[in-house]
Design a protein around this nucleic acid. Structure first.
Lengths: 208, 192
DNA sequence: GCTTTAAAAAGTAACGT
DNA sequence: ACGTTACTTTCGAAAGC
């Protein structure tokens, strides 16, 4: 009788223990990144699908959880880059990216295309810039997309460049370094994107 | 509208020499050889002309990489056999060569709307945060194509040159059909 | 799964000057 | 702000861990 109970517990825990471990890991990363509960729930839903389909076998729970979180944030429309998420896991960015692609392929998940506009609000907030800057940056990105200047480029880099240009136009100047840090890209990327956008969209930058 | 073009950049092939080899002896006699069995079980040998690298294994099997044509590959294998036989091995002069993978670069001579392509093509993946190209897995021929907005492409996974040609022309047609190809405006205007 | 080899595409990154 | 080098992605085989 006791043995049967023990077996049942063990069977339940094999799945539940995994889920609990994933849940702990997920809430830890999420609280550190300030990710909303709706997104955490979404990530947990994806994780359970992945676990059910046996895709966790041979892989670290951490890397899978990180990939699920990235995916959930994308679904919800609040993207967190792989670099950001990787910073709070033991799994490398490369491994998280690999898991992300595996899950996307195996579960046939079609995510909305990565949109640079979604990275703008956080950059604007972090730099304590105004809503005017936000609008202007989104405007620049809209034009850039119409002109086909965004294909193949890192969305975070494009968003950073748009915010930088907007800050110059509105006189709430932030340095390339500050914008780069807020967007988690290098100054070089901000500079390259900013130069290209300003040139191709004929944006005249006021000389300070 | 110009036809797509392509160029073979790398051929990977396996060669079965049919005899076991003493890699330690070979490594000693061949100054150019690299052999760290702790790190990798194969002996690495680089040829200058044609510029090809070979991974040579204890079992007499070999992997050749870097050839840009089947001719180059055959020349390299002859040279490798000659080198091995000059340094203590005893391998037949006509080993079997099997091409395992062909990598080619190409040009569709048209700009590609890769976002539209990503939405329309089922077996595709476009993650600009991870890589600037669209990754497309074609079923027939079974190859993988990396497609860039510039119209430049990479084709890998083919075992025959004909598969590369077919894949490049096919992807051109597919992209054209979904309306993802655009004339290169600047070039057209310069002509007239 | 990892190790090693070669090659292209375009973007990003990390060095040094 | 340059330039150079190096890393991301795709593919396949080999033998061994």
């Amino acid at each position: 009788k006791y043995r049967k109970w023990q077996q049942r517990v063990r069977v339940q825990t094999s799945y539940e223990r995994n889920v609990i471990q994933a849940m702990n890991e997920l809430s830890r990363i999420s609280s550190q990144l300030g990710i909303p509960k709706a997104c955490v729930d979404e990530a947990m839903g994806v994780y359970e699908q992945v676990l059910t389909k046996g895709l966790v076998r041979g892989r670290s729970v951490e890397a899978i959880v990180a990939a699920c979180l990235h995916m959930a944030c994308r679904k919800i429309g609040m993207p967190r880059s792989l670099d950001e998420i990787s910073q709070y896991t033991r799994a490398s960015r490369k491994e998280v990216a690999r898991c992300f692609r595996l899950i996307a392929r195996e579960l046939g998940v079609r995510l909305p295309l990565s949109d640079p506009k979604l990275y703008v609000p956080r950059i604007v907030e972090q730099l304590k810039l105004s809503g005017e800057i936000l609008k202007e940056a989104l405007n620049i990105l809209e034009q850039a997309k119409k002109r086909g200047l965004t294909a193949g480029k890192d969305p975070a880099g494009l968003a950073a460049a748009a915010v930088y240009i907007a800050s110059l136009l509105r006189g709430e100047v932030r340095t390339q370094k500050e914008v780069a840090m807020a967007a988690q890209v290098t100054e070089v990327t901000v500079r390259n994107r900013y130069k290209e956008l300003a040139r191709e969209l004929n944006i005249k930058i006021p000389i300070k | 509208m110009p036809n797509p073009t392509y160029r073979i950049e790398n051929i990977v092939a396996t060669v079965n020499l049919g005899v076991d080899l003493d890699l330690d002896k070979l490594a000693e006699r061949l100054p150019a050889a690299e052999y760290n069995p702790e790190q990798f079980p194969g002996l690495i040998l680089r040829l200058q002309r044609p510029k090809i690298s070979a991974l040579i294994f204890r079992t007499g099997k070999m992997v050749c990489t870097g050839a840009k044509s089947e001719n180059e590959l055959k020349r390299a294998v002859k040279e490798l056999v000659r080198l091995l036989n000059e340094h203590g091995a005893d391998v037949p002069i006509t080993p079997e060569i099997q091409v395992q993978n062909i990598v080619a670069s190409g040009n569709l001579h048209a700009e590609v709307d890769i976002e539209k392509s990503a939405l329309m093509l089922e077996n595709s993946m476009y993650e600009p945060e991870q890589f600037p190209g669209l990754i497309y897995r074609m079923d027939d021929p079974k190859v993988v194509l990396l497609i860039f907005s510039s119209g430049k492409i990479v084709c890998t996974g083919a075992k025959k040159e004909m598969q590369v040609k077919d894949a490049v022309f096919k992807i051109h047609d597919v992209l054209k059909d979904i309306g993802a190809l655009y004339e290169e405006v600047s070039k057209e205007e310069e002509e007239f």
